[in-house]
Every structure is written in structure tokens, then in C-alpha cells.
Write a protein that binds this DNA or RNA. Structure first.
Lengths: 350, 350
DNA sequence: ATACACAATGTAAACGATTACATTATGGTC
DNA sequence: GACCATAATGTAATCGTTTACATTGTGTAT
């Protein structure tokens, strides 16, 4: 008997099962299943009867049952350091776009910058809840328990390379872009430089600083001409670095910030202190967030192809799942410079 | 037989089942299940044996099987218009924090601003894949197919009220805040006003405009003194509104923007055109995004308690799931004004 | 010692799909 | 019309838990 809801419509929460459809259409459950999974394998007449029954009852296959039997979940776990970070939000959109077209959905594993939270998602993945894992974090510490790497699940890393991970890694060319930053500053005639770090030890930050130094080295800039400020990937870090900058007797005239938030806060802070950007100090950021062109002066920045990073990584992960995976490889997308008004030659005579 | 991985560690992808644990611990599967679900119901000795077996094998219960039998998934579907929008990202963090402590995880239903995408998530919810739905969108159109509202699933709405939805709705006090905006402008002595709309017909936008007008009405401002620009909740809309503003012979001296992005782009555009903010025009935004205090001039804005909106809505949803729900009710959180440098009295003699 | 309440465990039936294998229907060829 | 290949469908096992119900064990009151 097909129980109807009070309003006469089919009952919600899918109390209607494949048995009901089979009975209603006068076929076996196997035929119903086949009709839905592979319509061409059944007779047109059968197909029509089954589909009508489905439509009339509003039947939707129970996912748990399907997952259990078929041993897949059509779910991808996306692990990221912090959902609140707009940078990842844009990457997520790329991931989602790609996953959706392949019929997958995503579970968000938000670490909230706490390494301890990772265990939860390792467990979730272990439980067969997901068909693959996308790591949006460069920091997968080898804990006391088994970690993601050992799960034997298809994986991919995006945004930040995970050293030693045997999986596709999709990242922006941090090093190359940072060399370009150095070259740009040099080309403008700068001689004293500063670097505001993102998170200490973060793989992106390391690459950016290394690339920056490499570019400066190539131009013969002595290491003493480069000031380094530790920081974090947020606005506050920009304020603090700017304060440190302001106390210097001989200030750098060109500052490279590990991300746009830092750069924007840096500009705001030094401007409030009476300096002019770019006349007194030139600044280049990283990421190419939208706000970069809506501040004054507009920010020169290295644009990460965030959406594309998301798409490419999801695509790579899907390949891992389907083809068994081509496995370990590094895909570097270029991060081109977007020239704004925050860079100029240094004030003459300085 | 317990198959070990090549490295001698327990095999990944949880090929070890509850049967293995039962055998290893010399108990029945029922006892294993009980030990894990409700440890105090078994003998200390039994508990110890079971837990040891679990630890030695690295057993994790298969979630699909559990979901199937227990008829719950410990998953919440979060439907939002656009993952790439930083505003929602912060709300998501609040949601996640609350859900995690209750043992739930979240599936992201990203509509990408396309109404058509909703069907996918209705289906997902129908399939018993989630225990509840959190709607972060004010636009749930009654489609030709059954929509979320009819699912019979625990639900809650956040950020934007869904008219007619019989569920808890957690929103900021758009109207009250907008009245405060009007009062603030009036208090400064302004007489000509502008409003830059968010998405046309969006429930938040409607409330904000209504509240703004209400506040102006209360001060006896004639309707002709208010210019309305249609827009969208993004930077581009601010640019366009500003361009329209600039063409006016008699410009408003006080502009209220439906969100901070609009306000920021508006400021940038009129500044580039040679006007001074706030001397020539005062601007107030909405949301209180972080960047608001890092532009020049810093933005006066109505701060939405985004994290708290997320938390409160998740809490309400969990109550719906657990207690059967107290159901329909409106929770309005205040959106206090954060006064920046973008507001001042109008230039004298204007 | 016996009976009895109650705690601890075991047995086996769900949960709702997919799918290997068995069976029946269909159509083409001689 | 008989035969056979092949297409279409049916039967029933299976995925790995949870849990209702049955059974056994333990301690206490009589």
C-alpha cells in the first residue's frame, strides 16, 4: 500500500521504496533499478511504466542503501584550513562546478586553522563516507594516528603543495611569480626591499619568499637590502608589518606582501601615518582578490587563477577516482601580474 | 582473516567490518555495536576487549550501513546562493562550529545564483541523504516540482527570511538597522538621499529600502528627495550606481548602499572622479565586512553578526531535529552601526 | 536453596538498494 | 515450424550496520 501524506501528495522523506515502484509498475525491483541506472537496457514499454510509477510517487532512491551496496558515495571531502577565508571560497566555486557536472557533491571539512580538527575528517574518510579527498591545505602533519595520506583513497592537493603526497598537486607558480615581482621592482629602480610573510613555514609563503630573494639575487641585490617581517595571511599582519616598517630609519621603498590582505592593510596603515603610496613606498600583493582594484591606490598584485585552480584540482581528483589515477604530478598554473597604482619608481634622491 | 596492508598497517578504506571486531573480541556484533554507541551498557571487561580490537584493526563503522539502518545521516545540507561570496563564508564558519560540536557534518549546496540548481539539492534531501536543511537563501521559488518546503525535513532559514516557511528564521534586523541609517544621516543634516539596491526583489534588500524610507519619512523627508538605483550585491553594482550618481545635476549628499561591496566601489568611483568622501557625499554600507575599515576613508556600516547568525541558525536547526522542533519563529539579531570616516555633515552651502 | 529482578549478551531480522546468475521472451534463419 | 542467439526480465544474495526480542548470567531477598 502506498501511504500518502495528509495533503494527498506523496509522502516526504522518501518512505516510498524501490519495492513500491516495482509493484506499481508490475515488474521486479531489478528492472526498476536497471531502468533508472541504464534506461536503454529495458523495453520502451517497461521503461515507460516504471518511469510513470516513479513520477507518480515521487520516488527517489535511498542513498544510504545505494552507497552500501555500490560501495561508493558520490561525495568528495574538501579539507580546508578555514571556510571563512574568501580566498578559498572562490576556489571552492571552481571545485563545485566541476564536481557537480560529474554528479558529485562535496562535504566541507573545515579545520578552522586547528590541526586537531583533522582527525575528524580522517575518520569520516575512513568510514567510506566519501569517494575522494581534496586537500586545500599545505599542512598535513604526520600525527600519531593514521592520516589522510594513508587512507588509500583517491586524493588531490590544491593551492598548497603537500610535500611527499603521492597525488596530483595543483598550485599557482609562487616561485615564478615572485621572481617577476623582484624583476618589476628592480626595473623601477628600487634598491631597498621588504617582504611581509604569510604564515611561517607555510609552503606557499616559503616559495614566495624564496622566489623573491632569487629574483633579487639575480639582480645583484645584497641580502642586507632585504627586510623580512613575519606575519599571517590576514589584514592584522599588514598593520603590524606596517608599524614595524614605520619605525625604521632607512625604510625599504618596495614591499612585497605574501597576500593582498596584508598589502591592503599595509597601505592603509602607512597612508594614515602620512606616507604616500607609491611615491614613498611601492607595494605588491599576491592573490588578486577583487578588492585589490577598489582601494586607493589600486593594488599591483599577482593574480592567482583561483577558480581555475579549483576546477583543475577537481578534475584531477575525478580522474584519480575514475581511471585509477595517473597519480603523483605537479601542475603549476601561472600567476600573472596585474599592474595597479601601488608601484612606481622610488622618490628621487632617496 | 584480517588482511593487512603491504606496510603491515591495517588496511585502508575500512575493509574491516564489525564482524571482524566481534570475532577478534569474542563477542557478537550486537555487543560491538553497543560498546561503540553506548559504552556503559557493557561490562568493563567486554568493553576493554572490544575497544582493543577496534584499536588494533583501525576499525571505523561503515557510514552507509549505519545510515541505512539507523535512518539518519548526521549530515546537514546547507543551501546557499553562491559559495564564492565572502559574506556567506563567515556565516558558514558559525554554522560549522555549531554542527561539529553536535557531531554533524555539512554538505554544501551551492546554487551559483542559478535557481535551476536547486532541484539537485531537493533530490539530495529527498533521498534521505541529510537530516536537516539550512537555507541561506531568501529565494526558494515554488517550482514545478516539489520544493524544499514540502520535504518534511527539519529546516531553518538564515540571513534571509523565506516568506511562508514554517521553520525558524534567523536574520539580522534589516529594517531597524536601516531606520538607524536614516536617523544618522538626518542627524548630520542631510537633505537629499540615495539608495543603491542589492538584488531586486531580494527580501533583505526590500527590508533595507523600506526601513530607510520609513526612517526618512519619520523625519518628514519628501519622497522626491530620495534617488533609487537598482543594483546587485557586488562591487560592479557600486561602480554603476556611482556613474549614475555622477551624472546628476543635483546630487544626493547621503547614500545608503545595500551592502559594503557596493559602498566601497561607490567610494572608489566617485573619488576617482574627483569628489571627496565624506565632504561631497556621505556613504553608509551594510554587513560590516573586514575590509570596511581598511579602505580610505574607513566605511560607516551596519555590522551583521555573521558568525552569530550562523551559530544561532545551526542551533535552531539542531533543535528542530532533536526536539521535533518548536517550529516557526523569527529571530532577529541587531545590526549595530560601526561609525567610520565615510559620513559627515554635508558641505555647507550645498 | 529458590525465586526473581535485572543486567549483559546473543540471534537474527531489518534497512533499501545493486547485481550475479537463472530464467523467460523475442526474433531471425534455415 | 524448429532452433538458436540474444535480449529482457526475474530471483535472491549481498553490502555492514542497528536493534527488537530471546536468552543467559548475576546478585539479592526470602
Amino acid at each position: 500500500m502506498n501511504k500518502a501524506a495528509p495533503n494527498g501528495r506523496p509522502r516526504a522523506r522518501s518512505s516510498v521504496t524501490i519495492q513500491h515502484i516495482a509493484a506499481r509498475a508490475g515488474v521486479s525491483t531489478a528492472t526498476v533499478s536497471r531502468t533508472l541506472a541504464n534506461p536503454d537496457v529495458v523495453t520502451a514499454k517497461t521503461r515507460e511504466r516504471v518511469l510513470r510509477a516513479v513520477a507518480e510517487t515521487g520516488y527517489t532512491p535511498n542513498v544510504a542503501a545505494r552507497n552500501l551496496r555500490a560501495r561508493r558515495s558520490m561525495m568528495i571531502l574538501v579539507v580546508l584550513p578555514n571556510v571563512a577565508n574568501p580566498f578559498f571560497a572562490q576556489v571552492l566555486r571552481g571545485v563545485d562546478d566541476e564536481l557537480v557536472t560529474a554528479g558529485y557533491d562535496m562535504i566541507i571539512g573545515n579545520l578552522d586553522n586547528l590541526v586537531a580538527r583533522e582527525a575528524r575528517y580522517v575518520r569520516l574518510a575512513q568510514a567510506g563516507q566519501v569517494d575522494g579527498v581534496l586537500l586545500m591545505t599545505g599542512r598535513i602533519p604526520k600525527g600519531d594516528t593514521r592520516n589522510m595520506d594513508d587512507l588509500g583513497l583517491p586524493m588531490a592537493a590544491v593551492c598548497a603543495a603537500v610535500p611527499g603526497l603521492a597525488a596530483p598537486q595543483i598550485v599557482a607558480d609562487d616561485r615564478g611569480a615572485s621572481i617577476a615581482v623582484a624583476k618589476h621592482f628592480i626595473g623601477l629602480g628600487h634598491q631597498r626591499f621588504g617582504y611581509v610573510s604569510g604564515l611561517q613555514g607555510n609552503v606557499n609563503d616559503v616559495q614566495r619568499y624564496a622566489g623573491f630573494l632569487e629574483g633579487l639575487d639575480a639582480a645583484g641585490v645584497p641580502r642586507e637590502a632585504v627586510t623580512y617581517w613575519p606575519g599571517d595571511f590576514n589584514l592584522r599582519a599588514g598593520v603590524e608589518a606596517a608599524r614595524a616598517f614605520l619605525t625604521l630609519a632607512e625604510r625599504p621603498t618596495a614591499v612585497y606582501a605574501a597576500c593582498d590582505e596584508i598589502a591592503i592593510a599595509f597601505i592603509k596603515t602607512v597612508s594614515d601615518a602620512g606616507l604616500e603610496v607609491p611615491k614613498d613606498v611601492s607595494i605588491i600583493g599576491f592573490d588578486g582578490i577583487e578588492f585589490a582594484e577598489f582601494i586607493s591606490p589600486t593594488l599591483t598584485t599577482m593574480r592567482q587563477p583561483r577558480y581555475e585552480l579549483g576546477r583543475a584540482s577537481a578534475r584531477a581528483l575525478l580522474e584519480e577516482i575514475q581511471d585509477g589515477g595517473t597519480g603523483e604530478r605537479l601542475i603549476e598554473l601561472p600567476a600573472p601580474m596585474v599592474v595597479g597604482d601601488s608601484t612606481a619608481p622610488p622618490r628621487p634622491g632617496r
